[in-house]
Design a protein around this nucleic acid. Structure first.
Lengths: 226, 226
DNA sequence: ACCGAAACGGAACAGCCTTTCCACTTCCAC
DNA sequence: GTGGAAGTGGAAAGGCTGTTCCGTTTCGGT
């Protein structure tokens, strides 16, 4: 059977070519908003049913507009990637190379803790499509430059790479709940002390100590079944 | 209806009181062995069906012997907890307090990486029953003593607790696959450099650097749905 | 105001785990 | 060897999640 009027998938937040019907466009925006919220606190494994519920539309509507998760991810994170690049570049402009690096790491930890979906998109290949991949390819060299600069300034140990920094930030961002910024700050401070070439004494640590429960949460982290 | 001959659950590896029939005992041991294997590489979320398959028995048999996961966990990890206590105590006897702490951390990271189930039982409350809980209660003060000793020796920063150490070990144990010991070693070295009171230069780092893929794996770690 | 295309919602389906149940087999005390 | 309790395997029931499909509603051009 021949189909006219098949559904067109928009791959960006700004609609293109043949415009959607007004109600459809409204729903599309609602879905994107809902998806941002849901992905931020549950991660990209959240189901379309939950996004549909939050958006106040039927599941079918979500599936029609975004046939699979990658389409939705692509539409959502495009612009957030720009933010990250801007941050790295700002950090690279910091007068003190080491301070710039620390500031970026701090921002990265808290940002990724507040938005699990973003964390996944940034660090792990195979979410989204080419636009997302292109975004990652812009971020990587920028972070590498940041790392190099701190190394040339003699502050960051010369034997680590931008991926060491990325792993450290990614791991620490998984600590605690949304509100536990000070706990993450604590561990980041320790980690940065480890990444510095040398220091005379320990940096001041946020007072919030880990609890048994915090430890339990870390121990339960697992790779999703897929 | 009145039931005689209800199934008795053994809560330890060594059977007690009314003995099982010979075939039942054989199966029970097979199940424990299979469970150890499965829990070690998939973690405690693995299903009874998989354990049954590996043990070569029907699911029903597993359920009859161990009505729920906690019973199985209790039977399995009792003795492993003893190993941990022995290790902490050995570490506490090390002539150099700092070296003892490092050795214990190294052992902890690799052990927990090789056995996800053990990692969960050790760090997170609410697996198993009282025997497991009692085991945790023996480990905690032993680690605390280890930490104190290293602090009194002026080697470990005074503002961290045994839980800081536990979290660090737990997180690093989640890095990489079973075979990536050197990668975990790398991150542990960095972390320990951060936990030391002072050092003049960076410690030598294992050459194995993290890859994009390693970063991706970390970013995908999530709390299981429960 | 009307009509056909576009879009909608959610029930229905399919796959996957977990748990229960029972007809059949194995063991062992006599 | 035999009787009956103990133990077994796997099919079936139930719950959960992800995806498709189609009868109904909404939109917008005429």
């Amino acid at each position: 059977m021949f189909r006219f009027g098949y559904d067109v998938v928009m791959s960006s937040v700004t609609p293109a070519a043949r415009p959607l019907r007004r109600d459809a466009e409204r729903n599309r925006l609602r879905i994107l908003e809902a998806a941002r919220e849901v992905y931020a606190d549950r991660g990209l494994t959240a189901g379309f049913d939950e996004i549909a519920r939050v958006a106040g539309v039927g599941v079918g509507t979500v599936y029609r507009r975004f046939p699979d998760r990658a389409d939705l991810v692509e539409a959502l994170f495009d612009q957030q990637v720009d933010d990250v690049v801007a941050r790295v570049e700002a950090a690279a402009d910091h007068e003190d190379a080491w301070e710039g690096l620390c500031a970026f790491a701090r921002w990265g930890v808290q940002t990724q803790a507040a938005d699990r979906g973003l964390a996944q998109v940034l660090s792990s290949a195979g979410h989204g499509h080419d636009r997302v991949a292109a975004g990652r390819d812009r971020i990587e060299p920028a972070v590498r430059a940041l790392v190099r600069r701190a190394q040339q300034a003699g502050a960051l140990r010369p034997d680590v790479t931008e991926l060491d920094l990325g792993m450290t930030v990614a791991m620490i961002s998984r600590i605690g709940g949304v509100a536990d910024q000070d706990l993450r700050e604590r561990f980041l401070t320790l980690a940065l002390d480890g990444l510095a070439v040398r220091r005379d004494g320990p940096s001041a640590l946020p007072a919030r100590r880990p609890s048994q429960h915090d430890l339990g949460c870390v121990a339960e982290l697992a790779r999703p079944a897929r």
